[in-house]
């Protein structure tokens, strides 16, 4: 390989520094290029396979792990939230039923009290109105008697004033007949 590598630069480059023919086909430069290329490739390969690729692979795997964990955690939280919601719904339904029960009980109690009070009030009103009717009847009877007496007295007085003689029995009979008439 290294037999003809010591040829002069001048055989591929002219005096003015320009290329003679295609520089790509100057075989004198090949050993140099190939040697350094192989060195480069070996260095890049060692760096990549020892350091870079495992590291990037680890980073990507770690990120994948983190994402998977986060998703699992999120699922867990979601399940817990669903559970909590269910419990809340149940509590709400219970509370509503309880409230309805209490309301019904209260309503029944109030109704009973009300019925009692109404009955009592009805009885009282009935008693009071009976009493009042009796009083009214007495008053009316009293009033009729008073009118008779006043009418007899007045009749007697009128008869007397007209110069007649007031006969008590005649007056009474006249007034009675008039009152009935």
């Amino acid at each position: 390989m290294a037999t003809d590598t010591t040829a002069a630069v001048g055989s591929c480059v002219d005096a003015g520094g320009s290329a003679i023919g295609m520089p790509q086909l100057c075989f004198e430069w090949f050993p140099n290029q190939i040697f350094w290329l192989v060195v480069t490739l070996v260095v890049i390969f060692l760096v990549l396979s020892r350091v870079a690729l495992p590291r990037i692979g680890a980073i990507l795997a770690e990120r994948q792990g983190t994402i998977t964990n986060d998703i699992a955690a999120a699922e867990d939280l979601k399940a817990r939230a669903a559970e909590a919601e269910k419990a809340y719904d149940k509590a709400l339904a219970d509370a509503r039923a309880e409230a309805q029960r209490i309301a019904a009980e209260t309503r029944a109690e109030i109704q009973a009290g009300l019925d009692d009070a109404i009955a009592k009030a009805d009885a009282e009103i009935a008693a009071k109105s009976a009493e009042s009717e009796k009083a009214i009847a007495e008053i009316r009877a009293g009033a009729l008697e008073s009118i008779e007496a006043v009418a007899k007295d007045t009749t007697g007085d009128i008869v007397t004033a007209l110069g007649g003689k007031a006969d008590a029995d005649a007056v009474t009979a006249a007034v009675d007949s008039r009152m009935k008439g």
């Binding site: 010591t6 002069a8 480059v13 520094g17 290329a19 430069w29 140099n32 060195v39």
Partner: peptide, 29 residues
Amino acid sequence: HPMDQFIVKPLFGGDTIAWYTLTNVTLWL
């Protein structure tokens, strides 16, 4: 001189390019 940019030159003077010579190829690799 469109092909002049492809000329291999030794980095630190000298006029021989042996397989171990430091050239512009070495630099850019």
